[in-house]
Simulated scan of single mutants.
Amino acid sequence: MDAGIPAAGKTGPLAGLTVIEMAGLGPVPLAGLMLSEMGAEVLRVERAGSGPALLNLPAEYDLDRHGRSILRVDLKRGEGTELLLGLAEKADMLIEGYRPGVMEQLGLGPNTALARNPALIYGRMTGFGQDGPLSDRAGHDITYLAYSGLLHAIGRRGNPPVPPLNLVADYGGGAMMLIAGVLAALFQRSRSGKGQVIDAAMVEGASMLATPVHAFMAAGLWSDARGENLLDSGAPFYDTYETADARHVAVGCLEPRFFAEFARLLPLDQRFVHGQYDRTTWAAMRAEIAGRMKQKTRSDWEALFAASDACVAPVLSLLEARDHPRNRARGAFVKSGTLERPAPAPRFSQTPSTVAAAPADHDRRPQTVLKRFGMAESEIAALVKSGVIG
C-alpha cells in the first residue's frame, strides 16, 4: 500500500509489499524470511521483555530475524496495542503463529485489525486451526504429524514411526501453506480491494500434502500398514542401501524402463526385471540388490550410475550436499556473512530474489522503523521514553 514502508531498493516479485510478522518460532519466521527474500518489506514485531529464544543463535545464524526490520513493543500496554494497529493500517499483510485467541486478547485480532484496514491480509498459523476440540492445545511437528496419520506411515515395516525432522508439518504443511494462502488472498484483493483472514492449520496442511496417498488407498493401491508400499521402503527398488564404505545410496527406479537400466548396470538377474512388480519376488530382489551394493563404495556407484536414468543417487550428508558439483553449478547454497545456507527458492526470471542478511543496527532502531510508517520523531521519542517500544 502506498502509505506503508517504501521499497528501499529491494527487488523481487513482492517488492513494495509490506508485511508485519509477529515474532515466533518455526513456520511463521520461515514464511517471513521467504516473503522478505521475494522482495517484501517485513517488520518483525517482538514482545518487549520476552525471554531468550528456544535456540539462542548468534545474530549471523538467526534466520528468524534475517531480512527484517525489528521492533520491540510492550503489547501489555494500550499504547503498544494502538501503535501496532496503526502500523497494520499501513501494511499489506500481518502473519502470526500464536495459539487461537492470543491476538484477540492483545486487542490485535483480525476483526479489530480489518476494521482499521479492510484491505489487510491476516495470515494465522496454528497446529490445529482456529477452532475445534484441540485448537488450544500445544504441539510440535511430530504432534501434528501424529494426528494427520502421516507419522504412522513413515518408517520401516516392524519398526516404530520415524520423525522426518520437522519438515513436513512445520514447514511443508505450515509455512508453505501459509505463503500460498496469503499470496492467493493478495491476488483476490487485486480484484476486490478487500483483505481476508487465512486460517492455516499444520495438521490440515500436512494432510493436504498426502492427498495422493489417500487416493492410492481409496483405489486399493496403498496399505495402511507402514513399510509395505511403493514409497515407504516397502519396494526394494525404492529404498536406500549400504555400500562397501558404510555409506548409502538411494534407489528410486519405479518405472520399468528405469528399473531395467538399473538392473543392467548393477547387474541384477533378468528374472527380476520381468517381474518388477511381483511382490513374491521382492524379498529375493532386495537381498540381491543389498548384496551387490556392498561390493562397491558409494563413490563407485555414483560414478557408475552418473550418466544413466536408473534413478540412483548418493545419500549426501547436509555438509556434503553443499559441495556436490550439481549444487555448486546451480548456486544452490549461498554465503550470508559467515553462514552458508540454501539459496532463496523458487527462482524468478524477471524479478530475482535476494539473500536476506542479518538486521543492521539501523534496522533495530525504532526511529528508523517507525519513520518508514510516517510517524513523527516526537511521537517516536515519546514512545521510547515511556518504554512502549525499545
Rank of each mutant, 00 (worst) to 15 (best):
S192W: 13
H66E: 03
S336P: 14
M285N: 01
L35Q: 04
G16L: 06
R286V: 04
K10L: 13
A180V: 10
A343T: 12
E21M: 05
T112L: 09
T112H: 12
T351R: 11
A290H: 03
A329Q: 09
S308R: 02
F258A: 01
A381Q: 14
R99W: 06
R341S: 14
D232M: 01
A113C: 14
L304H: 07
P52R: 13
E379A: 15
L183P: 01
A40W: 00
Q130K: 10
A303Y: 13
E228D: 07
T297W: 05
G127C: 03
L14Q: 05
D141Q: 06
W222E: 01
S349N: 05
K385R: 15
L209I: 08
L186P: 09
F262T: 01
K385N: 14
T240Y: 10
A48W: 12
S317W: 07
A225S: 12
H140E: 11
R347S: 15
L209P: 02
L108E: 04
T81H: 07
R292Y: 05
G173L: 13
R286S: 07
R65V: 07
P267F: 06
T126W: 07
G195K: 03
A250I: 04
A7E: 11
Q350L: 12
I70D: 01
E21P: 07
R156V: 00
P212V: 03
G181T: 02
G107W: 03
P29Y: 00
S349Y: 10
P110A: 10
I5T: 02
A219Q: 05
R347M: 12
I389P: 00
I380D: 00
